[in-house]
Write a protein that binds this DNA or RNA. Structure first.
Lengths: 160, 160
DNA sequence: ACGCTACGTTCATCTGGCGTACTTAGCCAA
DNA sequence: TTGGCTAAGTACGCCAGATGAACGTAGCGT
């Protein structure tokens, strides 16, 4: 039985891709997470750098805090009242592979002649870093055919 | 100089994440690519499985063909006229790490008790597969501190 | 000539994004 | 104690795009 055939019998709404996309799958959220990952934590600089409407930014921040990907932390700048900034939680930091994957695709296919805007190096050995599929026995998968998907324990079959 | 400081001096619109998100960064596009990756290539099953409005689906397909991620290929079912289906190009298939990253996050943080809906195995050795950051010297990066970002050749400094 | 099917298209409605302007809460200085 | 200042939101009118249902269409076999 081919994977496509098996796939067609599975409920498409029971899917980790769909769940993650429902959580963070819009333009501003990705860019917002990019900024927070790079240490930009406050409303004003976030708004300036993203160019997002303030209302949208506020809504996204509230949603991410609510979902536990960011946490609101108080801070106090000299001569100012206490305000709040947004910090990545572990739950939020775990989205980093998604950002790296998006970045890697952009570098591969959407870069200008000048090259990639950001490079990732391995601290220590200094070599370029890329995303790869690795199995539990530490084999690095190369081709499409090395990957065998199968229904997991959480899969649900379609009723029809 | 900290990375955050350097990051703040870079033009946030010159970014591979932003470019990729502009290309494929909406809910239906991700789910559509998921289906095509799993071998669902035709309009009618795509529409049924996704539940997307037909107009949206048609628009997304046209856009992805236009961008070279999908190609329209003729087919002919017995007793039917020639129609077209949508196949992943290499350019489209290269987005797979993004889908895997989204799926992995969903498995980690959004799965029900039953477990992941889909498992990825290494064909041959049979072990579970996951995404990892690997450097050109084949070191697998573990912690956050192993990763050193720096401005790339395509970076642009902010005017101000 | 006619119905059938897969693939879209149209249309009315409504949600949510957008840009701009405004509000708020506390700190400091006068 | 008044008043200005700043970061962080909120309010609002407008419009692009999503939505769901109905309709259009191009060729196949009968």
């Amino acid at each position: 039985m081919t994977w496509t055939q098996e796939w067609l019998e599975l409920d498409p709404t029971v899917c980790s891709v769909a769940r993650t996309v429902a959580l963070v799958g819009d333009k501003w959220t990705f860019l917002l997470l990019r900024e927070v990952n790079n240490g930009v934590r406050r409303f004003e600089p976030l708004q300036r750098r993203l160019g997002a409407p303030r209302a949208v930014l506020a809504a996204r921040l509230a949603h991410l805090v609510d979902a536990g990907l960011l946490e609101r932390a108080p801070y106090r700048e000299a001569g100012q009242r206490t305000r709040f900034e947004y910090r990545l939680t572990q739950r939020g930091a775990d989205l980093r592979p998604v950002l790296v994957a998006l970045m890697q695709y952009g570098d591969q296919h959407l870069a200008e002649d000048a090259g990639p805007p950001v490079e990732l190096r391995h601290r220590g050995c200094g070599a370029d870093v890329h995303l790869a599929l690795v199995c539990a026995n530490a084999h690095v998968l190369s081709g499409r055919d090395d990957l065998a998907p199968r229904p997991g324990s959480g899969a649900r079959r379609l009723a029809s």
